Computed example of a mutant assay.
Amino acid sequence: MSEFDPHKLTVNLMTPATFAQPVEGRKYTLTHSDITGQLFLDIGYMYNMQVVNPQMRDEVLAEWKKDVNGHLTLAGTAYVDGGEYSSSAAGIRFKIFMKEMDTAISGIVYGDRPFYARYPLLLDAPIFIHYMSNYPQYRQVLYYGTPRQYLSQINVVHR
Score class of each variant (00 low, 15 high):
Y28N: 00
I43R: 05
G70H: 11
Y131F: 15
E100N: 15
G91Y: 13
K27F: 04
L74Y: 06
T36W: 07
L142T: 09
Q153E: 15
G44S: 08
A62K: 00
T77P: 00
V23E: 08
K99D: 11
F115P: 01
K66L: 10
Q140Y: 05
Y47S: 04
D58M: 04
Q55D: 11
N48Y: 01
R148D: 03
I96Y: 06
F128E: 07
S152D: 15
F97M: 11
G82P: 07
I108Y: 01
H7P: 00
N155G: 10
K27R: 15
G111I: 04
G44Q: 10
V156M: 08
F94M: 10
H158P: 09
K65A: 08
E59S: 14
T73G: 00
P120H: 05
D102K: 14
G91Q: 13
D34G: 01
D112R: 04
D102G: 07
Q38A: 12
S152Y: 06
G107F: 08
T77I: 14
L121A: 07
Q140G: 01
R118M: 09
T73D: 01
A20S: 12
L13P: 09
R93T: 09
Y150W: 10
A89D: 14
Q140M: 14
G91F: 13
D67G: 04
T103M: 13
S87G: 01
V11K: 04
